[in-house]
Design a protein around this nucleic acid. Sequence first.
DNA 1: TGTGTGATGTTATACAGTAACATTTGAGAC
DNA 2: GTCTCAAATGTTACTGTATAACATCACACA
Lengths: 144, 144
Amino acid sequence: MERDVYLQSAEAHCERLGCKLTALRRRVLELVLEYDGVVKAYQVLADLQKERGVAAPPTVYRALDFLVEQGLLHRVDALNGFVVCNHFECSHESLILVCEDCGRVEELDAGQGLAAVRDAAGAVAFNIKPQNLVLAGTCRACHA
Amino acid sequence: MERDVYLQSAEAHCERLGCKLTALRRRVLELVLEYDGVVKAYQVLADLQKERGVAAPPTVYRALDFLVEQGLLHRVDALNGFVVCNHFECSHESLILVCEDCGRVEELDAGQGLAAVRDAAGAVAFNIKPQNLVLAGTCRACHA
DNA sequence: TGTGTGATGTTATACAGTAACATTTGAGAC
DNA sequence: GTCTCAAATGTTACTGTATAACATCACACA
């Protein structure tokens, strides 16, 4: 999706959910969009500091948490990072593939793949909540 | 598995892999075994400090990393923690279920559940490497 | 008995995240 | 208009997580 279109959709998405994509949150989202793949909170913080002189961790963490909450970003626990979600419109479960070599990220809809996992958990009476799976591996380009 | 049996198997397991379960590594494993569920590195560090007076982070991280490498522990990224693996003998992929309420952990063999996920990744030419999935949810006891 | 390798010790620091409280801003009541 | 409340942002300080870099130790084996 193109950047401007994305931002516009993101704004509408927030509107629909009854919350606001404020200037700060929007700017943080833009900064994340400028990277390919996984971005660290402190990278965004550094970018923000370049623009505004000062910025403290809570500023960026609050914005990132908000964006995750609205489904615009996914958190990547294994890397303490964040990636843009390209289909926040549809409620979904994702399979996020992170290439160990180049750091690129691919995101798939994981609906049916996850069903088997969910069933396995159900078999021991464990309810897993909807969530995104982030897996490491090698991408098309790198495992050539 | 009973504690002593477990430790003995662990020792044999390391032997088989051509590495050593030294006194320190063994002690760290014992400390982790004393907890139910997820354990933090700094908890283990604190325990170690109680016993030995001094101990620095690298001491415990090195031991934990070793134990993860040999398959005796799994790392739980989402919680910055570690859990004991109860079937390190068989090479396996696990589904590790962490209860959000009580912190308990259940580990299943995830072989077939993961197959679907692996296929989905394969469809976009992405090779995911064998790994354990750690998922949050609620356990049998808690979602009553 | 040397010597090289892997394990451990030690110091310092980098990176990640949050608590607590102050200040600002903007929407709706009046 | 201005009051007021809630949500967002600013600010300070701190806690927690992890690793780099180098020193030392211990043991297998030449």
